[in-house]
Amino acid sequence: MDNVVTKSKDVTVLEILDRVLDKGVVISGDVIISVADVDLIYLGLKVLLSSVETMEKLRGTPFVGPMQEPT
């Protein structure tokens, strides 16, 4: 039978990111990374950026009109 348990040595970067970036004690040190930056890393980490670009392009189609509403 396979063992379902993964020792932390073998865990993926994702597992680490999922904890290290937005868990753990958060206090205001002297240098602060904002939560927004954390989300950016999630975005940057994977191919999401390309799909975001595609979405931006789609929003720019003539049907939307020149005045884009902020989302």
């Binding site: 904890r19 290290v20 040190g29 002297d30 990374i33």
Partner: peptide
């Protein structure tokens, strides 16, 4: 107690104060 990635202090004094 694990801290969040990149919890930084400019001096030992500010760390101790925390």
């Amino acid at each position: 107690i694990p801290f969040k990635f990149a919890t930084l202090f400019s001096t030992e004094e500010s760390l101790k104060a925390m």
